[in-house]
């Protein structure tokens, strides 16, 4: 609450508004860039494309930076712009996963089957547990490291579809059209991604430090 109107490094320009000053604070800007670049590269798998998207997003953000006086609000805004840039690139399909490769992504099916017994019920030690206050975790840096590790543990195509759907928030039908895959194919891939991701988060976070 109290930090709301305390611009961080305010040099000799007292009239400058706080939002802009976040973007001129080299440390903040550097960290933000690194985080954005990581996010964009994860989804575009191409450093140059990611650089471009980040650059454009930052320029776009500068124009509106004046309307933010909290770093977190500014950050949300910058990431929203970045998401749009990434969505544009994905839609153009310049870096698309070929559908044929998607369909071949079956390597983990056996693995997932092991979660269930022969009748399709949870194996006793795989049964999902209750997560207590899961959204507290989003403020924890260590949680995000675990999350990233779990994400990169997914088969590549599952991870990318999950990101297109849940990070960039493209609609299902948009993803299917762009990638030329069927809806049921997409749904099955998302299902597998979620099965794995929740298992990983439970084993490596919610069952570990979080629970006392």
């Amino acid at each position: 609450m109290n930090s709301e109107s305390t611009p961080v490094s305010q040099p000799e320009t007292p009239g400058e508004d706080p939002g802009t000053s976040h973007l001129t604070d080299p440390t903040f800007l550097k960290e933000l860039r690194v985080q954005m670049l990581k996010f964009a590269t994860l989804q575009l798998r191409d450093e140059a494309l990611a650089e471009d998207a980040v650059q454009e997003a930052l320029i776009g953000a500068l124009k509106n930076a004046a309307s933010f006086n909290r770093r977190s609000a500014l950050k949300t805004w910058v990431f929203a712009i970045l998401k749009n840039k990434i969505a544009d690139v994905l839609r153009k399909g310049s870096r698309m996963i070929e559908a044929s490769r998607l369909l071949r992504d079956n390597e983990d099916e056996e693995n997932l089957d092991a979660l269930f017994d022969t009748k399709g019920f949870w194996q006793v030690d795989e049964r999902p547990a209750a997560w207590s206050h899961p959204m507290k975790s989003v403020k924890n840096d260590h949680f995000w490291r675990v999350f990233e590790a779990c994400l990169s543990g997914l088969p590549e195509n599952q991870a990318r579809l999950f990101m297109m759907r849940e990070f960039i928030e493209l609609e299902s039908n948009e993803i299917c059209e762009t990638l030329n895959i069927s809806t049921s194919n997409l749904h099955v891939m998302l299902y597998r991604a979620r099965l794995r991701l929740r298992e990983c988060l439970e084993n490596r976070w919610f069952n570990e430090g979080e629970r006392s």
Binding site: S72, N140, F147, R198, L201
Partner: peptide, 27 residues
């Protein structure tokens, strides 16, 4: 539990895509 976690997973992903972290975590 799995059902609840589907929503949680989605919320977590949206937070991640907002650049959420401990530095003034996006709330």
């Amino acid at each position: 539990n799995f059902g609840k976690q589907m929503d949680t997973l989605s919320d977590i992903a949206h937070n991640y895509a907002k650049g959420s972290d401990s530095d003034g975590a996006v709330q």
